[in-house]
Simulated scan of single mutants.
Amino acid sequence: MLKIISSQDFSEFSQQAKAAPRQRSHHNLHESLDAAVQRLFIATEPSTYMRPHRHSEAHKWELFLVLQGQLDLLIFDEHGKLSQRHSLSPETNRAIEIPPNTWHGYVCMQSGTVGLEIKQGAYSPTPAEDFAPWSPAEGEEGAEQYREWMRHAQVE
């Protein structure tokens, strides 16, 4: 069966993100969480917090494409020092592939941002040890301040 995603769908994804408590929404293209390849649209708003994490399994690369708006990808070393920052948007870099075991986080820079994430499945929740220990968990004290730091942090 063909799956067609229109500009109207992007608008709906963005509206869902704006209405969601976490200020983001997911629209899966894969049929099940057991699918060998996970493919999903993610709509985000600037107030969402995407905690730095890694995918420690050797096969868990991540390909991310920004189709509308802007996200910045931040790459960290194992101690939490920012080592790379990449703007992703239709005007800058459209896509980036992140190798396994790379500490990374995203920060939404523009309202109405929609991206497409592709990674090898099956889906499994991120284990606690794959969240960056130097960053607060979502909803914890300090998470909003850390998100704001991420918005402006620069590589030294």
Rank of each mutant, 00 (worst) to 15 (best):
M1I: 08
M1P: 09
L2Q: 12
K3Y: 03
K3W: 01
I4R: 11
I5P: 01
I5Y: 10
S7D: 15
Q8V: 10
Q8G: 01
Q8E: 14
D9W: 04
D9E: 11
F10P: 01
E12N: 13
F13P: 02
S14Q: 15
Q15M: 11
A17Y: 01
P21F: 02
P21Y: 04
R24Q: 13
S25V: 02
H26G: 07
H27A: 14
N28S: 13
N28D: 12
N28Y: 14
L29C: 04
E31N: 13
L33A: 14
L33W: 07
D34P: 00
A35N: 09
A35M: 02
V37S: 10
Q38D: 04
L40P: 00
L40D: 00
A43V: 06
A43R: 02
T44V: 14
E45V: 03
E45A: 04
S47A: 14
T48K: 00
M50K: 14
P52I: 10
P52R: 05
H55E: 12
A58Y: 02
H59K: 11
H59E: 14
K60S: 12
W61S: 15
W61K: 06
W61I: 00
E62P: 02
L63W: 12
L65K: 03
L67T: 04
Q68W: 00
Q68C: 02
G69S: 07
L71E: 14
L71A: 00
L73A: 10
F76E: 08
F76L: 11
D77K: 08
D77S: 06
E78Y: 03
E78M: 01
H79E: 12
K81T: 14
L82M: 14
Q84Y: 08
R85M: 08
S87V: 07
S87E: 13
L88Y: 07
S89A: 15
P90N: 10
T92C: 04
N93E: 13
R94Y: 12
A95P: 00
I96P: 01
I98G: 02
P99A: 14
P100R: 11
N101E: 10
T102M: 07
G105Q: 08
G105T: 09
Y106A: 13
M109P: 01
S111R: 05
G112C: 05
G112D: 05
V114K: 01
V114Q: 06
V114R: 02
G115Q: 04
G115L: 04
I118Q: 05
I118P: 03
Q120L: 12
G121Y: 08
S124D: 10
S124Y: 10
S124I: 09
S124N: 05
T126L: 10
T126Q: 02
E129F: 06
D130Q: 15
F131M: 11
A132T: 11
A132H: 06
W134Q: 03
W134T: 04
S135W: 08
P136I: 02
A137I: 00
E138K: 13
E138M: 06
G139N: 06
G139H: 07
G139I: 07
E141W: 00
E141Y: 00
G142M: 08
G142P: 03
Q145T: 09
Y146M: 13
Y146C: 06
R147I: 01
E148H: 13
E148P: 00
M150S: 11
R151I: 10
H152L: 12
H152V: 15
H152A: 13
H152P: 00
V155H: 11
V155T: 12
